[in-house]
Structures are given as C-alpha cells and as structure tokens.
C-alpha cells in the first residue's frame, strides 16, 4: 500500500509540477499571472480539442480505432500548448501592451478559462469523445509495457508512469539550469528583478515578458492536459482549476526554483493523497481530509517569512514597466 501512495502521489504531483514550473517562468519575468488555474483549464480544453480532431480525422478517413502513439500524443500536446500559449499571449497583450493591472487580468483569465472549458467540451459529439479514454489508457498513462513495470517494486516506483511525468521532471530541471547558467536566464531574471535596469542595459523588456509568459503558460497548460488524460483517464467532469491555485502557491513555496518544485509538488500531492488511504471511520475522516490544507497554509507562512529574509522573490514581480513613465 505504501508503494501505491507514493506512486499515486507522483502521478498527482505532475499536475502541480507543470503548473508551478510554468508559473515560475512567468514570474521570473516579473509577471504575476493569477490566471494559471484558468490557463490549466484552457490547456486541458486544448488537449481535448486536439484529441477530438485526431479522432475525427480517423473517422473521416474511415479507419476509426487505428490510432498511432506518436500522432495521438502530438495532437493532444500540440493543441494543449497552442491554446495555453494563446491564453498567455492574451494575458501579455492586456498587461504589457494595454497596460492593465496584472492581478485583475489574471483573475479574469481564470474565470474565463474555468467557464470556457465545460462550454467547449459540450460541443463534442459523444461517439467520437468516447474514444478519449482509450487514447488515454493506451498511450498517455504508461510509457513502458505493463509486463515490464509490474515486475517488481523498483520498476513500479520508477517506470510505471505516462510520458508527461518524465517530461515534467525534465522541464523542471531544464528551467532551473536555464535560469542559473545561461545568458537568457540571466536576462530574464534581470527583467523580473528590475525592468528599468534591464531596459537601460539594452534588453527588450516587453519581448522578454511576452515570451516568458507565453512559454510559461504553455507549460502550465500541460498540467491541465496531464490531469485530464492521465490522472482522470479523460473524464471531463473533473476540473483542474482548484489545483491551479495550489500550483500558484507552490511557486512561493519553492522559492522560484523549479528543482525544489519537484520535491515541493510531491509533498503537496502526498498531503492530498494520504487522507484517502488512512483508515479512519466516520466524521473524523473529514477532519483528516482537512490536514493538507492546514499544512499548506503553515508551509506557506513559514516559507513566506524565509522568502522575505532571503529576498528570493523577483523584486519587480507584479509591476508594470513603461519606459517613459515618470
């Protein structure tokens, strides 16, 4: 049972990891995108649209059911990235070009995304969307064949996941390396810390903010896709938005470091999964179910104090920048 708790925590953690890694990229540019929950919904919606298009094409071609692993993954992931990226573009356009308040824009984007998701899903024809769960179980939930990962506890612990889990870890490590080691990372951090300094040094603040927000949003969107197609086996009735908020707070918890984010998202997921496995009868179970929320609050308070002392948050977070402002 212990193994099961760990593996399902890892699966669940991937939602948080994508969400927080994407938000970290965005926040490093000085954009506080409160629209992440909405963007994750839009990402999930995009992946569903991608899967729907793919299945529809197969129906049109007269070969329904002859699915292909690469194309299935390509269509879902591509449309997920496309739609989530477009949401990021919308956020950047409103905050950078139209100079609106970031918090208000973000919250509006969340409301928009959460509402758009069921609306778009409702247009899907039933007979085609039935194929979603087979796509999910066939290609997205496991990379390795069952005979391999079910052989012993070690392979179960490390190789029983879908491709997105491994991708999430790779993305998180990649972001951390880019931020720390490369020129682009240094420039992006400068834009987030002190946009005026970046501008004076000849960096185009607007371009960096646009790109970071679009890429960050696309990564967050993958969290929505993972949640829909891997975690929930393509069941539409579960909406990802509440986990989006946790992804946003996870960014603070991880002190804007996606390496810590890998461990942090596991801890968050573990706290969520655990009460379900505890053998507590009756109303006490409800209290146990509250524990993760309490722990989350406490962790956030503690890390916020540390963050303030260490100055880890990008100093320009949430501030708009216009060069000719007086």
């Amino acid at each position: 049972m212990f193994l099961e708790i760990i593996t399902s925590s890892i699966k669940f953690a991937t939602v948080f990891l994508f969400g927080s890694a994407g938000e970290t990229v965005t926040e490093k540019s000085g954009h506080l995108n409160m629209g992440t929950p909405g963007i994750m919904c839009i990402g999930a919606m995009g992946s569903a649209i991608g899967a729907y298009i793919y299945l529809s094409i197969l129906v049109k071609l007269g070969i329904p059911g002859q699915t292909n692993a690469f194309l299935a993954f390509f269509f879902t992931a591509f449309f997920c990235l496309l739609f989530a990226g477009l949401a990021g573009l919308l956020f950047s356009f409103i905050t950078v070009t139209l100079r609106c308040n970031q918090n208000v824009t973000g919250l509006a984007l969340t409301t928009f995304g959460v509402g758009l998701y069921p609306f778009v899903i409702s247009f899907f024809k039933k007979e085609i969307s039935l194929g979603f769960s087979s796509l999910s179980s066939k290609y997205l939930m496991h990379v390795f064949p069952e005979s391999f990962y079910n052989s012993n506890w070690f392979t179960q612990l490390f190789f029983s996941y879908g491709i997105l889990v491994y991708l999430a870890i790779a993305v998180a490590i990649g972001i951390a390396i880019i931020m720390k080691k490369t020129r682009v990372g240094l420039f992006l951090r400068t834009v987030g810390e002190n946009p005026a300094a970046a501008d004076a040094a000849g960096i185009s603040v607007n371009r960096y903010r646009y790109l970071a927000t679009i890429i960050g949003s696309a990564i967050s969107g993958l969290g929505g896709m993972y949640y829909l197609f891997d975690n929930c086996s393509a069941a539409f009735e579960f909406v990802v938005d509440s986990y989006g908020w946790l992804a946003v707070s996870l960014v603070i918890f991880t002190m804007w470091n996606t390496n810590i984010g890998i461990a942090g998202s596991f801890i968050f997921a573990f706290l969520y999964i655990m009460p379900g496995y505890l053998n507590v009868p009756g109303p006490e179970k409800q209290i146990f179910a509250l524990i993760p929320y309490f722990v989350t609050v406490i962790i956030l308070v503690v890390t916020s104090i540390f963050n303030k002392k260490l100055g880890k948050a990008p100093a320009g977070l949430g501030q708009s920048y216009f060069r000719e402002d007086r």
Binding site: R183, L186, R189, N194, A197, G202
Partner: peptide, 17 residues
C-alpha cells in the same frame, strides 16, 4: 542606479550583452 540588487557586479555588467 539601474542595477539588480541580488546580482553580483559582473552579472550586472554583462546583462543585456
């Protein structure tokens, strides 16, 4: 001054190049 407080001197110099 247009400097990033949390960076080192050399990082501040090469930023933007």
């Amino acid at each position: 001054f247009k400097l990033v407080d949390t960076f080192t001197a050399v990082e501040n110099v090469v930023v933007g190049l």
